[in-house]
Computed example of a mutant assay.
Amino acid sequence: MMLALGKITVDSLLEAMTASKFKVFEGELNLNIIGVRAANTRANTFNDVICVLYQKDKKWQLKQYKATTDAGTYWRKNPMNIDGTAVLVPGQHRSLWKLGYHQGKYRALVQNKPVIVLRDNDKNDELETDIRSAELQEGYFGINCHRASAHTESKRVDKWSAGCQVLANPAEYDEFIELCVQSGAIYGNIFSYTLLDQNQLQGQKRNEKHEN
């Protein structure tokens, strides 16, 4: 089953959030930032999706952006940390980010509190995601949400992510950050992030079976 951009629905996200007992933020422009990690973790492409689910005029709105929630193969094979490449563990990371500047260069969501990551030290192109057998660490690791190229949509992750959540398209990224700015003006400069695995989206499974 492929993770199809545009096939994720409001209902499938709400179902997944409710099933996992995650907080769903309600209210005008109160953002639910939700990453969906594709089942194919070997890819060096932007095959994941970052969704922004929010209410406007009391109706649910959904934006979907092509992204990666995984480090590129360069950093998998050449970890920045001697313990291995950082892999953000699935779950709801409350108050994870705040608006700031990625590497001091441009506006982004930057890590605001300690977070749990899995350390993948196999140094191959297959991302390690099994939290039962891997080393977990908690701390400040620079797990930000930022963009890839400032000029064109990026097709390959490569060095764009060493563990950050990265949007592929700069125009979409600008839209995403503007939503964060608007929301922050109402609710404060703190943003939670929920990372789901693809298999948690029951609605997408139904869509895929119907198409097949």
Rank of each mutant, 00 (worst) to 15 (best):
N207A: 14
F46K: 01
A43V: 09
S192T: 13
G91W: 13
G84N: 08
L88R: 10
A16G: 13
W97F: 14
Y101G: 02
W75G: 03
N112Y: 12
L53Y: 14
P79G: 02
S154K: 07
Q204W: 08
E211Y: 12
P114K: 00
F176S: 06
F25Y: 15
Y101P: 05
Y54L: 11
C164I: 01
D120T: 06
G100R: 08
L5A: 06
V117K: 03
F46P: 00
G203F: 00
N144W: 09
T73P: 02
A86T: 02
I116P: 09
Q103H: 10
C145H: 12
A43K: 13
N81R: 12
V89A: 06
C180Y: 07
S149G: 07
D125I: 15
P79C: 01
H102P: 15
N144I: 02
A38G: 13
I8M: 01
E138R: 05
K123D: 07
Y187I: 07
V89Q: 03
Q92N: 09
T69H: 10
A171C: 04
L13N: 00
T69K: 10
R156H: 03
N199L: 11
E28H: 14
Q198C: 07
A71E: 10
E26C: 02
N78R: 11
G139T: 02
T129E: 03
E138L: 02
C51W: 11
V115L: 05
G91I: 01
N189I: 08
V115T: 15
N199I: 03
K66M: 09
N81A: 02
K159T: 15
Y101I: 01
I50H: 07
A71T: 10
Q202E: 13
N207D: 14
D120W: 03
N81F: 15
N40M: 07
S12I: 08
E211R: 14
A39I: 06
G184L: 06
T9I: 00
A162E: 11
N144M: 03
R156L: 13
K56R: 11
Y65A: 02
T194Q: 05
Y74G: 10
A67G: 05
N47G: 10
F141E: 09
V10E: 05
T18Q: 13
H93K: 05
T129A: 04
T68L: 01
N169Q: 02
V157R: 06
L167S: 01
E175W: 12
E138W: 00
T18W: 00
Y173V: 06
E208K: 13
T9N: 07
I116C: 09
A134T: 08
W97Q: 04
N199H: 05
K59C: 05
N112H: 09
K58C: 05
I33D: 05
Y193D: 11
N207V: 04
G163T: 07
L29C: 03
Q61C: 09
E128N: 14
Q61Y: 01
E211H: 12
Q55F: 09
N124C: 12
E15N: 08
V36Q: 09
N78I: 07
G203T: 00
L5I: 15
K209N: 13
S20D: 01
N169V: 04
Q137P: 00
L201E: 02
F191N: 12
C164E: 08
E26Y: 11
E15W: 04
F25M: 14
R76D: 05
E128G: 15
A43S: 15
A86F: 05
N40C: 06
T152R: 13
I33E: 04
T18P: 07
